[in-house]
C-alpha cells in the first residue's frame, strides 16, 4: 500500500513523500517493494518505507548505496523501522 502525501502548506515546498507500508511483506519483501516504486516516481521524491523485516537493516542501505539513491534516515518504531529515502537520479 502506498500513498503520496501532499506537501505541507508552508512557504518552502517540501518534496513529495510516498509512504510504502511493506510491513509483513515477506514475499517478495520490503526491498523489492522499494525497488518497484522508486522506478516509477520522479527524481527528488522521498519515500517512507515501513519494514518489519530485520534483514532490511542490512539490505536496504546496501542496495541504496549500490543504486546511488540517498538514505536520509532510519527511524525505529514499534515493531518496525521507517526508512526515509530520496530518489536522486533516473
Amino acid at each position: 500500500m502506498s500513498e503520496t502525501e501532499p506537501p505541507p502548506a508552508t512557504a518552502v515546498a517540501a518534496p513529495p513523500r510516498m509512504v510504502v507500508d511493506a510491513r509483513g511483506s515477506w514475499c517478495p519483501g520490503p526491498l523489492m517493494e522499494l525497488v518497484r516504486v522508486i522506478k516509477d516516481e520522479p527524481v527528488g521524491t522521498e519515500f517512507e518505507l515501513l519494514s518489519s523485516d530485520e534483514g532490511s537493516r542490512k539490505d536496504i542501505p546496501m542496495w541504496l548505496e549500490k543504486a546511488h539513491h540517498e538514505l536520509i534516515e532510519v527511524r525505529p518504531d514499534s515493531g518496525f523501522d521507517r526508512y526515509i529515502v530520496r530518489k536522486t537520479h533516473d
Binding site: 511483506s25 515477506w26 514475499c27 517478495p28 519483501g29 520490503p30 526491498l31 523489492m32 525497488v35 523485516d53 530485520e54 534483514g55 539490505d59 546496501m62 542496495w63 549500490k66
Partner: peptide, 10 residues
C-alpha cells in the same frame, strides 16, 4: 534485482 537471491533472509 536486489543484493540477495530472494526478498528476505529466511
Amino acid at each position: 534485482p536486489i543484493p540477495k537471491v530472494f526478498g528476505i533472509d529466511t
